[in-house]
């Protein structure tokens, strides 16, 4: 739909429309998309290689750090000896459970204060 269009301009715009040859233009566009495809493929290969190299280089240090964290979180809070109380309280008698319970407590208090709902 057009509003209050000038007739001369309408005519001029219609006359200026040329039926342009498609072959060369289409070929150029297809060549450019092909180049783009190669570039994307090369980029993806480079990223994959970089990730593989990083994984190879950092695998051992990352594993060591993970082990240290796990050991730290497993550290017992109270020495309860080797009896059944130690065995029974093992799931909560460590730094990891202290973290989880503290977080849960903080969120519960916050929820009560603010009145918002949180999920953990």
């Amino acid at each position: 739909m057009t509003e209050n269009q000038d007739l001369l301009l309408q005519t001029l715009f219609a006359e200026a429309q040329q039926d342009l040859s498609a072959e060369a233009f289409t070929a150029r566009v297809m060549t450019r998309t092909q180049i783009l495809r190669y570039r994307v493929a090369v980029g993806l290969i480079c990223v994959a290689l970089a990730l593989a190299i990083c994984a190879w280089l950092l695998a051992l240090p990352a594993q060591e750090i993970a082990q240290l964290i796990v050991q730290g979180l497993n550290t017992t809070l109270l020495d309860l000896g080797d009896g059944w109380p130690a065995w029974l309280l093992a799931p909560v008698n460590n730094i990891a459970s202290l973290f989880v319970l503290s977080l849960k407590g903080i969120l519960t208090i916050r929820k009560k204060i603010i009145g918002a709902s949180y999920k953990i």
Partner: peptide, 21 residues
């Protein structure tokens, strides 16, 4: 890609004219 090339062939004239204007 053949379908895409066909789309380019069909629509190139109007887009090129638009860009020329």
């Amino acid at each position: 890609r053949s379908a895409f090339a066909d789309l380019v062939r069909r629509r190139q004239s109007s887009i090129r004219n638009l860009m020329r204007r």
